[in-house]
């Protein structure tokens, strides 16, 4: 189970009216390397990983949910006061036609979220390496998002999220080292 704290992990301020940025940010909401894919990937993999790294994967998966909230907050703030006309101008006409201002799990091109974005191979090395790759791809996405805006407040939040990807990647790399180690009970075969 989870305990919910009714606050964001890191403050989200948006100081520029830029609904088009919401269209790009949604990549990190329902995109292939987004926070939803990350959270679901880790929270699903944790069952069949070696005991020593389950806690780590559980914690990172949980943190991804808090990142998902931050992205949602950004998207909401950027679109909540847009008119239908502004939504069209921002490239969100198709989104508006289907969802009004509601958030929807799709990528920046409008492709709906898919479970095929991630996997659970059952082999701990394969799964942890996928996790590392996912973190690096998410870090890259944050870089490209930062490159597309000049809103310093938004950049501040995105920079925090990018840094967390770096930390998560490091922790997953450590998880690989942990499960590479021969454990105390040696087996001879």
């Amino acid at each position: 189970m989870w305990v919910y704290e009714k606050k964001l992990q890191y403050p989200v301020r948006v100081s520029k009216c830029d609904p088009m940025m919401a269209k790009y940010l949604i990549e990190q909401y329902g995109g292939a390397d987004g926070e939803l894919a990350a959270a679901l990937r880790y929270l699903n993999q944790r069952y069949t990983l070696p005991e020593k790294v389950i806690g780590l994967v559980n914690d990172i998966g949980t943190e991804e949910l808090s990142h998902l909230e931050m992205i949602a907050t950004m998207v909401y703030k950027l679109t909540k006061d847009a008119t239908a006309e502004q939504m069209k101008e921002a490239g969100l006409g198709a989104h508006y036609a289907s969802h009004d201002k509601a958030l929807y799990f799709n990528d920046a091109s409008g492709n709906p979220f898919s479970a095929t974005y991630f996997t659970a191979k059952g082999d701990p090395i394969a799964d942890l390496y996928e996790d590392i790759a996912a973190e690096e791809k998410a870090r890259a996405t944050y870089q490209w998002l930062i490159n597309m805006t000049d809103d310093t407040d938004l950049i501040d939040s995105l920079t925090f999220l990018r840094e967390r990807e770096i930390i998560h990647s490091q922790r997953f790399r450590e998880a690989v080292e942990i499960i590479k180690d021969d454990q105390s009970t040696k087996k001879v075969f």
Binding site: P50, E51, K52, I179, K180, D182, Q183, T185, K187, F189
Partner: peptide
């Protein structure tokens, strides 16, 4: 020399 297979006792 590292072993190419590791073992652990899962929670039961």
């Amino acid at each position: 020399m590292s072993t190419y297979r590791k073992y652990y006792r899962p929670f039961i």
